[in-house]
Design a protein around this nucleic acid. Sequence first.
DNA 1: CCACATAGGTACTGACCGGTAACACCTATG
DNA 2: CATAGGTGTTACCGGTCAGTACCTATGTGG
Lengths: 200, 200
Amino acid sequence: MATATKTITDGKHDGIPPRERILATAVELFYRHGIRAVGVDSIAEAAGTNKMTLYRHFTSKDELVAEYLRRLADKATSVWGRLASQYPGDARAQLRGWLHEMAAHVESGKERGCALANAAVELPEKDHPARRVIEAFKTAQRRRIIELCSTAELTDPEMLADELFLLLEGARVTAQSIGRAGLGDRLVRMGEAMIAAHDK
Amino acid sequence: MATATKTITDGKHDGIPPRERILATAVELFYRHGIRAVGVDSIAEAAGTNKMTLYRHFTSKDELVAEYLRRLADKATSVWGRLASQYPGDARAQLRGWLHEMAAHVESGKERGCALANAAVELPEKDHPARRVIEAFKTAQRRRIIELCSTAELTDPEMLADELFLLLEGARVTAQSIGRAGLGDRLVRMGEAMIAAHDK
DNA sequence: CCACATAGGTACTGACCGGTAACACCTATG
DNA sequence: CATAGGTGTTACCGGTCAGTACCTATGTGG
C-alpha cells in the first residue's frame, strides 16, 4: 500500500519546498481516494518526504485537510477573474463561459465531483476545521453567480442562479454514480435553456 | 467511543431478529456519521448484539454496506408506487408530488444528503459491492423520471427529467455545505417553473 | 569555522480497525 | 430429556492509523 502510491512531485523535488510538495500531493491523493482513505504517511511518502516533516508544517491531519480545501477553493475562485478579463463588462458571457467551462470539466478525465462537497460528505463533524472553508466557499460561489445573473439583467436572478448552481452541483455528484458520458453536452443545453428562459 | 453510541433498536430488542436490528442500526449510523467513520463494532454494540453475530449474517463490512444501501434504495423506490396510487393515471401530479415530497424531505430535520450518493463519494473503488447498488438505483431513478415526464406529455421529457433530477441531487449535496434554510420552498418554485416551461 | 534552522530517517506509542477462534448459553423441537 | 442451531461473550490476530521522540544530515549566514 505504501509503495503503491508513487511520488507525485517527482523527478527529484526540484527545489520545491516540502510544504508545497506535501500540499500538491494531498490535492492529488485526497481528491482521488477520499480524505479518510488516505493516511498522512502515504502523503508524506508520495511527496518524497516523511511524516515528521509533514507535522512540522501542519499541526494535524485535520489542518492539512483544511489547507488542501483552501487551496482548491482559491483555485476555483480564480476563474471568475479570468472570465471577467476574458469577457470584460459582459456579465452574461462570463456566466455562459463559466457554464461551458464547468461542463467540459465535469465530463473530462478524472472527475470525482467537487472536492469541497465531497469533503462535506466525508466530514460531518460540524466543528471540523474544513467545515468553515467549505461553507465559506460554497456560499461565496452562490453569491457570485447571483450577482452575475443580476448584472446580466436576467429576470429573477436569484432563482436562476440557484437553478444553475444546483444543476452543476447535481451534475458533479451524479457523475460519480451514473457516470459522465454525454453529461457535458446535456449540461450546456440545460444551462443555456435556463438562462434563455430568464431573458427579459 | 463505544459507549458513546447508544442502542438504536432499543427498549429490549422486542423479538426483532438480530439481522434486522443490525441493518436498522447500520442505516442510522452509516447515514449520520459516514460509512468509513463507523466501525462494525459500534454497529453491533448499538444494535444490542456483538461483532460475531454480525459476521454470522454479513460476510464482510462491505457486504453490510451494500445491504444498507439496498435497503434505502428499496425504500426510496417504493414512493413511486405510493404516488401512482395516490394520483392514478395522472403522471404530472405524480411528478409534482415527488418534487414536493423531496423538497420537504430536504429541508426537514437531519438531512445529510442522499445516502447512495454519499456512499459513492466515500467509496471510490469501482469494484466495491456497493457500487453496483448505487449505479443501478440512480440509473433507474433517472429512467423513472424520464418516463414520468414522457407520459405526462411534457416537451423534451429527457431534458426536463435531467433538469429535475440534477436539481434535486444538487440540492441534497448543497444542503450539507451551505445548509438547508429555505431550500425546500426554493426547490418547489424552481421545479414547478421547469415543469411549466415544458408544458406543451 | 561555527551556529542554527530546516529536512530526512527510524522507531516508537496507543488506539482502533476488520475479521476470527473458542466456548458458554438458551431455547425450541424431537 | 436430549440434541441442535442461533446467539452472546471474551480474547485474540495482524494491520493501520494519527501523532511523537530522537538523532542525523545538510546547508546557510554570521
